[in-house]
């Protein structure tokens, strides 16, 4: 301790040591202990519990008849699961890429000293404050062929205009992409804008002195500086994609048929409405695996960059 020079120190220590001071030493741990217990039980314990359930043949109610990895084997031969997993690939991939592209574009354009920047930023970002249920309800209305966008454009005189993705099993998955991009791309814009504001001006000035054109400066100098932001954004967006549940429920209900099922809706349907708790648990564990596959490289690089920086 660096407080040895303090003359009052020894007396105080001697006086306060017995009960009060020891309590003070333990108080922080005492305050944290309920949260630690909650985390151990409700997060880690529940993960293990779900894993255990995934090894049983639980149907309507949890049972503890162990069947090994049979539920996972069933999952691998379940066509609906593969539709859900493929959908997540399509939905997640497009959602992440379009959000990144749109977010970056808007951020760069907004960064050109636009007088109305504050107002525009507010407009781009407000969907993020909404519930995915609200987003789903609104887009379901906009995309319904009879009275929505299709009808509106036909009313303008384009009689052959067709935009009936919501009712088309092959295209319905893209309606999820549209609604999700609408909701989250403004947020990605905000991330990029913060990143752009953090870039050292002198790098850009130096490039300008070298006679580089504006697009070239952005492509070669600015965007590479945004790498960490891209990384975080990909992380957050893929996380949103894997968790997507409410949007599907509200916008397509997983339909037509089960054409727009995602793992999250698959899990819920099987565990809660189709009395397939074992199978539902197995799908939940695979979802967790998906999240970990994204999270671990992210955390790894975060820790590494922190050590170097």
């Amino acid at each position: 301790m660096s407080t040895v020079s303090s003359p009052t120190r020894p007396a105080r220590v001697a006086r306060g040591r017995p009960a009060g001071a020891r309590l003070q030493d333990w108080l922080p741990r005492l305050v944290l202990s309920p949260s630690i217990a909650i985390s151990l039980f409700f997060v880690y314990g529940f993960m293990i519990w779900t894993f255990v359930l995934s090894l049983t043949n639980s149907r309507m109610l949890p049972s503890y008849d162990f069947v090994g990895f049979a539920q996972y084997a069933r999952l691998m031969t379940n066509e609906r699961w593969w539709v859900a997993a493929t959908n997540l690939g399509i939905f997640g991939g497009l959602f992440v890429v379009i959000c990144l592209g749109l977010g970056l574009l808007l951020a760069i354009l907004l960064d050109q000293r636009i007088r109305q920047e504050g107002a525009l930023r507010t407009l781009y970002l407000y969907p993020m404050a909404l519930s995915f249920i609200v987003t789903g309800v609104v887009w379901k209305w906009l995309l319904n062929p009879g009275l929505g966008i299709q009808a509106m454009v036909r009313g303008w005189g384009f009689e052959d205009f067709t935009f009936n993705w919501l009712t088309d099993p092959d295209m319905a998955i893209y309606t999820l992409v549209i609604a999700a991009v609408w909701q989250a791309s403004g947020f990605v814009m905000a991330l990029f804008l913060a990143g752009l504001r953090g870039i050292d001006d002198s790098i850009i000035k130096a490039a300008q002195l070298d006679g580089a054109s504006l697009p070239r400066i952005y492509w070669r100098v600015v965007i590479p500086c945004l790498r960490p932001v891209v990384f975080s954004a990909v992380m957050i967006l893929s996380h949103i994609a894997i968790k997507s549940f409410d949007l599907v429920v509200a916008l397509t209900g997983g339909g037509p048929g089960y054409a727009t099922d995602l793992p999250a809706t698959f899990m819920y349907t099987h565990a809660f409405t189709r009395a397939q708790i074992g199978l539902g648990s197995a799908s939940a564990i695979l979802m967790l695996g998906g999240v970990l596959a994204i999270l671990i490289p992210y955390l790894y690089s975060e820790l590494r960059s922190r050590k170097h920086g």
């Binding site: 997060v43 519990w49 899990m267 564990i285 967790l288 999240v291």
Partner: peptide, 12 residues
């Protein structure tokens, strides 16, 4: 706890 998909805790 920030990162888990909540599906993994629903049944327990």
């Amino acid at each position: 706890g920030c990162f888990i998909p909540f599906q993994v805790v629903l049944l327990p």
